[in-house]
Design a protein around this nucleic acid. Structure first.
Length: 573
DNA sequence: GCCGTTTTCGGCCCGACTGTTTTCAGTCG
């Protein structure tokens, strides 16, 4: 079940946007933003809290606690409803365009009556923006670029949002009588970084109860198709969900067919055809007699056409079939292989939870080590100092060994400056157990400068991991334009690991870059970059991305035992 | 609207970049 926290976070964020757009007190808007973020990352479900409990959430006072109670009891907040009257929904959509904030959006609405992205596009093409105060030709070009970026992500949604929705539906349908099996398939099962629609499969003798249940789910806004074998709906958030109900003995064939990718399926069917067989979502058949040979499990189907079972995350027609035929299919890293998280934050910088809570949540995940890596001072907004860092280190040392079986590492996330320098000199860096170094600004340097910058960071003997290497944010910011082959070569040469940042909005490195980097012989670290206890489980998306990059546990330093990891982390001569 | 080893008012992360201006507003991280 999705937590009420997510809905409340969304509506408070909307309220903050509405305040900003209508020119309200900026600090008040920020208060709602901060509260929204704190609630989204809060460990407890707000629906279970009384008003007193609500006010224990950071940045939630009386006024916001009252609004949360109002929402939980009535499903809406009157103050938000009132503000919605004065700002069309499309104006709020405008501020999701990079480079367009609340002030410019309101000017566009008040001066030109623009209240959605299409109207904005028209106005840009008619060059009507450049006459507005504070706008110009460059602004028009930037807006076009921002819209293109948004539309490239299109209607696809982030992996975690799709996963939450799918798991909720699978749980609902699994509880219906007659359900023999239920699972999600499609690009979600392959852990693609964005998801266009969700494919749900059910094995049952009778389909009607499942079709009806899907159409009746609270988040279903529209039923696109409603049949005996397939039902498609669109949720209130615009996400399409396709449900297929299969005869139980076709389960394996259906799962294989609907997991794809398309190109992978075409190849498997070609192999079947060459053996006088026919493969469909109902089974593997003799092409001549039509007799069904196997159909109940994926393993049987792959085996019968001469292949080992291929993990879903590899089914992209990127050479997995040839590798399988040669017996060289990798055993992809699994979430169970991960022994610890090497990049996490606390409320000492921009995290939401105190050190103690983050550590306890990490221990509950069964990690055998856990690194705390708050931001260093060059990210000025975090106001870090040596003194604060050393005080945190003392606290980390005290907490070490208090959770059975888990050791703590004290680290930092350094900022890679425009020239490739990092926050502190070597003598201070030497005191950390681990240094992650990442780019956080100056994304538009030349390709040469960006490449040199990353290579210099790799060459710093104290830097063990390059964090979110391309700095992309899916649907929001493109990757930086560096010569990544040169960077990967530098990582391999210097023994610096590349991060696979597991945050669903980053997934950075992405699968294709991982494949390239691996050819250079690079090592990797899969990290949650958690800013809240609720982000620690994002690890699964990093693992999925690593699998898509064909990585095995040996490639990933945080699957290693602590002693081996420590040797890797120690400064290079 | 929230918060407090500076506590019931008066601050609120702070600096840089961009594109627009001709000294600055808006946006971002």
């Amino acid at each position: 079940m999705a937590r009420a926290n997510d809905e409340i976070e969304a509506i408070l964020q909307e309220y903050a946007d509405l305040i900003a757009i209508t020119g309200g007190d900026a600090f008040r808007a920020r208060s709602y933003e901060k509260a929204a973020r704190a609630i989204g990352g809060y460990h407890a479900d707000v629906a279970t809290l009384d008003p007193k409990g609500l006010r224990e959430i950071p940045n939630v006072g009386k006024s916001i606690a009252d609004k949360i109670v109002e929402y939980l009891t009535s499903g809406q907040i009157s103050a938000v409803e009132e503000r919605r009257q004065s700002v069309p929904a499309g104006v709020r959509e405008l501020i999701t365009i990079p480079m367009l904030g609340p002030k410019k959006a309101m000017v566009l609405y008040e001066e030109l009556g623009i209240s959605n992205v299409d109207q904005l596009l028209d106005a840009v093409h008619e060059e009507r923006l450049r006459d507005l105060k504070g706008f110009g030709e460059k602004t028009e070009a930037n807006i076009l670029h921002g819209i293109a970026l948004m539309q490239k992500a299109g209607t696809r949604i982030l992996l975690n949002a799709a996963m939450d929705a799918a798991e909720q539906i699978v749980a609902e349908l699994s509880g219906i009588e007659g359900c023999r099996k239920c699972a999600y398939a499609g690009s979600l099962r392959r852990m693609r970084e964005t998801i266009g629609d969700i494919d749900i499969l059910v094995a049952a003798d009778s389909s009607a109860p499942f079709m009806d249940a899907l159409a009746a789910l609270p988040h279903t806004a529209e039923v696109i198709a409603h049949g005996a074998k397939k039902t498609s709906v669109r949720t209130t958030k615009g996400l399409q969900i396709d449900l297929r109900v299969l005869p139980p003995d076709s389960w394996g064939a259906g799962l294989q067919y609907f997991t794809g990718a398309k190109a992978h399926n075409i190849r498997t069917r070609e192999i079947a055809v060459r053996q006088g067989l026919k493969l469909s979502e109902y089974g593997l058949f003799d092409a001549e007699t039509g007799e069904r040979i196997v159909s109940s499990t994926e393993e049987e189907i792959y085996e019968r056409i001469g292949l080992p079972w291929i993990p879903p995350t590899l089914r992209e027609d990127r050479g997995e079939i040839a590798a399988a035929l040669r017996g060289e299919l990798p055993v992809p890293v699994a979430e169970d292989d991960i022994r610890g998280d090497l990049h996490t934050h606390t409320d000492l910088t921009d995290g939401l939870a105190p050190l103690e809570e983050m550590v306890a949540a990490a221990a509950a995940r069964g990690y055998s080590y856990y690194a705390v890596t708050d931001h260093a001072p060059d990210l000025a907004m975090q106001r870090m100092t040596k003194e604060k860092m050393l005080a945190q280190r003392d606290r980390v040392r005290e907490l070490d060994r208090t959770h059975k079986g888990m050791r703590l590492l004290h680290g930092t996330e350094l900022n890679i400056g425009p020239d490739g320098d990092v926050d502190w000199p070597g003598d201070f860096l030497a005191g950390f157990d681990i240094c992650v170094a990442s780019i956080h600004s100056h994304f538009n340097q030349s390709r040469e400068a960006l490449t040199r910058r990353l290579v210099r960071a790799c060459e710093n003997p104290y830097v063990s991991v390059i964090g979110h290497p391309t700095t992309r944010r899916i649907g929001k910011r493109p990757p930086i334009d560096a010569d990544f082959d040169a960077v990967f070569a530098a990582c391999a040469r210097t023994g610096t690991a590349l991060e696979i940042n597991a945050h669903p909005e980053r997934l950075d490195l992405g699968d294709e870059d991982i494949l390239r980097a691996k050819r250079h012989g690079v090592l990797f670290a899969i990290d949650s970059d958690a800013h809240s206890t609720t982000h620690l489980p994002y690890m699964r998306y990093g693992v999925g991305t690593a699998q898509r990059g064909w990585l095995t546990k040996d490639d990933i330093v945080n699957t290693w035992p602590l002693a081996k990891l420590r040797r890797f982390l120690s400064p290079r001569a």
